[in-house]
Amino acid sequence: MRLAAAVVAAWLTVGVAQAADSIPQSLTGAKGDPARGRTIVTNRHVGLCLLCHSGPFPEERFQGTLAPDLKGAGTRWSEGQLRLRIVDSSRINPATIMPAYHRTEGLVRVAPAWRGKPVLTAEQIEDVVAFLMTLKD
């Protein structure tokens, strides 16, 4: 009995630890489209990523220097880890400047046009994740 409880506790801890660094399941249940993901990432009004990040986008003249280069992101992280970092980076680093792209709670004075809407839809998140997974070096 006591052993069973310990096993359950251990299993729970592992589960929680995994959940803390990763969202393993697709938000839509489907795989994203990497080509659409690239368009989102490089569009400064949609993905906004290049405001802060740089990356392997030779055609983009203005890239940010506030965040790590996205080159090789698909090697450094698993798909689930990338998904969590896009959905809500603050779950890893509470002080992060990276916006939570798929969260609507806990925000202050959101402009009416954006209220109640995440920065990216679930489908767009999956596209971005699929694209980042192609950044292998």
Partner: peptide, 18 residues
């Protein structure tokens, strides 16, 4: 805002960056 940033995060912490 939707981007959840403070003025200070850019202007105290990130000034001079691009």
């Amino acid at each position: 805002g939707q981007l959840n940033l403070s003025c200070s995060q850019c202007h105290d912490d990130q000034w001079g960056r691009s």
